[in-house]
Design a protein around this nucleic acid. Sequence first.
DNA 1: ATATTATTCAATACGCGTTCCAAATATTTC
DNA 2: GAAATATTTGGAACGCGTATTGAATAATAT
Lengths: 204, 204
Amino acid sequence: MTKTVGRPPRSETDVLEFRKKVSRHAMALYRDEGFEAVSMRRLSKAVGCAPTTLYAHFQGKTEILMLLWADILAEMTQYVQENLKRTTEPTERLKAAALAFVGYWIDHPDHFRLVFMSNDVGRSDVDSFIETGDVQGSFQIFADLVGDLNPKRIDVKFRTDALVAGMIGVALCSITIRNYTWPTVSMMTGQLIAGVTAAPQKSH
Amino acid sequence: MTKTVGRPPRSETDVLEFRKKVSRHAMALYRDEGFEAVSMRRLSKAVGCAPTTLYAHFQGKTEILMLLWADILAEMTQYVQENLKRTTEPTERLKAAALAFVGYWIDHPDHFRLVFMSNDVGRSDVDSFIETGDVQGSFQIFADLVGDLNPKRIDVKFRTDALVAGMIGVALCSITIRNYTWPTVSMMTGQLIAGVTAAPQKSH
DNA sequence: ATATTATTCAATACGCGTTCCAAATATTTC
DNA sequence: GAAATATTTGGAACGCGTATTGAATAATAT
């Protein structure tokens, strides 16, 4: 409102522009040279600013890594969609999607780490304003499949979320606890789906 | 067989002794001062050796952190056992155990990170000879509960593993993706259990 | 132009995981 | 003792995430 003397703060568009630039370079670094190439020093060099400047725009590396989520989640979603069996049989479709989902992460453990293991566990007081829309979007496909499976649309939201969390767990376990003899991904995934298709929970 | 001249390699007992010593100090550091206190430099100081010596006995920090798994898993198992409802109703017992399991990790995110998020994802070529017995042991309680639930003991092993992986996924999601509005832990866990109690999978 | 304010910058620092290397030490056989 | 071998050590180095600080620079109102 009131005009003040001196240089004005960053304009909204400037902020977004810079964030977009950082995002682009971080993505390029990650795609071309892998996870470890995305360091604050190298990234700042690519962007063309001082390392400290990054900290004026982001509260830490974690927030920058989140810029890469959207791309990976989009790629994963596309992969899942390609692997949808051409059946109309709902259970078959859901199973195919689930297998593709878990398979994608197991085939790309670096991507998995980026999305699910790069948060600062413990420091939950920091208000990280992530674009949760990305996450929501990539889960939507499963919500649809679960919905198709259950025309009455009972408990679709939390059945879907439980399935997704379960699949992420299967991926995590398969990736990180490698010397334990886990059942096949197919078997464990089938088990999760059995839960989704089960009768509604009695809310007591 | 043939005696060779010169100093012999470390004796088996010496190796074990040193590993035990490192384990003790790592544990003390972690319990007393938290995750970030367990650094190679501080740990070596506590042990009383040079930092580089640790690398002669372990292939990296990850292998040292694994020494802490057993303790945490034991504590978690005990917590689960304490929270077993006094019911004999199998489903109730399993549900109580599952809720305790997930709750433990959510209440101790640092422990969760230590056990499930400190592996070097991607470097799977390294043959990490972890004591998988620890993991096996802490899952056994669930195998028992699942077995009680299903007297015919059909698919107990992979039903249990799927449940455990699912619960770990629920914990991971609740811990790391905090701004997404997940259903309650109770609801998601109930969903997983529904899968365990479902009819056997048709193996096709 | 000048004062004022916001932002960027370079430099420095800390501790981190990890690697390399030459010097020192320990333990054995001869 | 000497020679041989295994291990430990200290020191330095690299790049890392992050924080601080004071100087430089940019953009505005007057």
